[in-house]
Design a protein around this nucleic acid. Structure first.
Lengths: 219, 219
DNA sequence: TTTTGAACAGGTGTTTTCACGGTATTTTTT
DNA sequence: AAAAAATACCGTGAAAACACCTGTTCAAAA
């Protein structure tokens, strides 16, 4: 693949080889772009990003091993802030989207987008610097209106409450949890009641679901 | 794309358009194959499969909306048992793999496989009828040795137990769950005790974690 | 035809969870 | 220095969860 004038270099970062190669074929089929390098995760990207041959655009998966999309974005923002990144993800949940937008991606496409939308996004990012679909902006706006309820909530949880919450995601009784935290069972009850109040939850199962949904407890 | 002799027709089924188009490009880049049709899920496949123009091979995603890979396989086995199916999945867990193998797929590739392995798999399936990697057969053999513990456990759950289990993943009390299932609270207790016994679990939180980890309850 | 198993229901008692009421100490913020 | 927030703790009583039994009905499998 020769380097041609007016053809913009694209870097691909995705751990799924088949998907990556597929996208590569697709990108190369667009006359104005070509894939200049591929990496399977953030660490590999770090090694491949030579200042002498930077891509004009990076297309990156969000969920990757070793170094995920979010961490990779933080690194890119520090070292190569001028390279726009288009995030590709299967996650359509608010958390993932908002997280990536905050980290500075210039576009966020779902993996079931139409190829023409990919091309459109790539062109728009090249020309205007960003490409946000209504879907994505909708999610973002939605997240802004949730300050009072779900979002602020688990940000104002204290360290100790989070520890307690994570231990609730187990078959331990509150008494056993208290043992593990070196507190009295009554105190554990206190944390539970406090969490119930803060999160507007009424049962331990509710705590478990909250912890999992908000990534405080990994399965 | 003209129909050429010796060029084998391939059908693609995957709900992620970008991935599908990518794979399509890839398949079309192999001289001995070309994509004759694409569908985004099982239902669409049913409509597109004309007996007058059957593909020689179907490449199918496992996780799809409407009609997933497993259901689609059941239908294919009944109506077009002679078309070999190559499963593509991101799931590398034993459950998914064994389930698909049992349903009769002729190959199972992870989406992070190398494109050359895809080509290899397609060729091998065409020539020999099947292509199973060591990874896949390993998982299969492993699953045979797990009859007693993890595998049999959640496959021998009855429909009613699964319903009950899903309702446990909420803030409903067992009494309220009983109401929703139109059974007496005692019966609900019975289901709980039965599940505890079958799954070797001791608390409701354990049930919740089990249900989530095994995909019986979607967050 | 006997047996197995799913679905359903009840009894009894213990343990855990939850709701509601508090207090005291320390750290952080203002 | 005062206010606020985090940490830790306690009592009571009701409700829910859990353990360990009993049983019937019905349909499918051996």
């Amino acid at each position: 693949m020769p380097v041609q004038k007016f053809h913009k270099k694209v870097g691909l970062v995705d751990d799924h080889q088949l998907f990556r190669k597929g996208i590569a074929e697709l990108v190369n089929s667009f006359p104005q772009f070509y894939v200049s390098f591929e990496a399977s995760h953030g660490e590999e990207l770090q090694k491949m990003l030579s200042p002498l041959n930077l891509p004009h655009l990076i297309i990156m998966d969000v969920n990757m091993p070793n170094m995920d999309g979010f961490k990779t974005m933080l690194w890119l923002k520090e070292h190569f802030p001028d390279i726009p990144v288009l995030a590709l993800s299967m996650m359509d949940d608010e958390q993932s989207i908002v997280r990536m937008l905050k980290s500075g991606v210039k576009g966020y496409l779902l993996k079931d987008a139409h190829p023409s939308e990919l091309l459109n996004a790539m062109n728009t990012i090249s020309d205007n610097g960003f490409y946000y679909t209504d879907f994505v902006t909708g999610r973002l706006i939605n997240s802004l209106n949730e300050n009072d309820s779900s979002k602020k909530q688990h940000q104002q949880l204290t360290e100790r409450e989070i520890q307690f919450l994570c231990l609730c995601c187990s078959e331990y009784s509150y008494k056993e949890i208290a043992d593990k935290l070196y507190i009295s069972p009554r105190t554990a009850d206190g944390y539970r009641d406090k969490l119930f109040e803060k999160l507007n939850i009424k049962s331990r199962v509710g705590l478990v679901l909250f912890a999992i949904r908000n990534g405080l407890f990994k399965l």
